[in-house]
Design a protein around this nucleic acid. Structure first.
Lengths: 145, 145
DNA sequence: AAACAATAGTTGCCATAGCAACAGTTGCTA
DNA sequence: TAGCAACTGTTGCTATGGCAACTATTGTTT
């Protein structure tokens, strides 16, 4: 692996791309008055798919710190999109699930997200997607935890 | 482009990979008592390469918000790694440059960063790097500003 | 059973991200 | 030259990210 290669700014490029994506999504959300942030959306999407999870599971599934989950969930509860439910057996556990309003929000925002994903990929192929996935997964696996 | 393709979580994967990278770097910085954050490092690296820049240029070069630059620079000034210098012609402008201590910090941290970059890429090839660059650049270009 | 370890989640703190509002300066134009 | 637009940077506010310390609960060990 050459010097030039290693010193090339892949970290920077990842960061820049992700920021531009997040920014674009957020502006669309704001323009269409969805009244959520991109990360709040990610949790809603995850809760829709898993129906009923705990903070810890959500943290693992979304690659977010559990403290961040705790705070985002707090905001979603205040917005009436998520409800907490105590576990009867283990009183430390709190189950999280979307309220009916949360399910509505998911359905409302879903198609917008779908469209935005298409825009990011518009000039790329399925092979490109597979390549990106492979490379990012490899980098992820290469980094010690 | 298929449904499955579009609904696949590339945003999530980018985010997860970047977080793991940033985390790994930060832990190494902390373990070796470099006393800087990853983003502070990115500004130091940029200032080393450009010698003398303004907040605006630095924001463009690093893909960071100018308010974020303003605050990170404030921290670096407090640490004695960066100094501000007013422009004689245009009194709105402030030039930024590394102090001698800032240059030392750059030289001190550089090899550590070099090693970490190698670790992320250890099982990948130059072709992989070129592919990643191409795909990320394409996504970046596809997103409206 | 008492002591201790492990687990689930919250809160405090500081750093980064981005928007809006602001102050000061400079350039343009009527 | 007065007024306004554009530019440079800062500050306030809210959200996310991550570490450390904390509470409460449950499981384990002696």
């Amino acid at each position: 692996m050459t010097d030039t290669f290693v010193s090339n700014p892949s970290f920077f490029k990842l960061d820049a791309t992700l920021k531009k994506l997040r920014n674009y999504w957020q502006k669309k959300f704001d323009a269409e008055q969805k009244d959520i942030t991109v990360d709040q959306w990610l949790l809603i999407e995850n809760l829709y798919k898993h129906k009923k999870t705990t903070h810890n599971e959500l943290a693992r599934n979304t690659s977010k710190d559990i403290t961040t989950i705790s705070r985002i969930i707090e905001l979603l509860v205040k917005k009436g999109l998520v409800k907490r439910e105590a576990d009867a057996q283990d009183r430390r556990k709190v189950y999280l699930q979307l309220t009916p309003a949360g399910v509505d929000k998911y359905k409302d925002v879903k198609s917008l997200v779908y469209d935005m994903r298409k825009i990011g990929w518009k000039t790329l192929t399925e092979t490109d997607y597979a390549e990106l996935t492979r490379i990012l997964d490899t980098i992820y696996a290469n980094i010690p935890s």
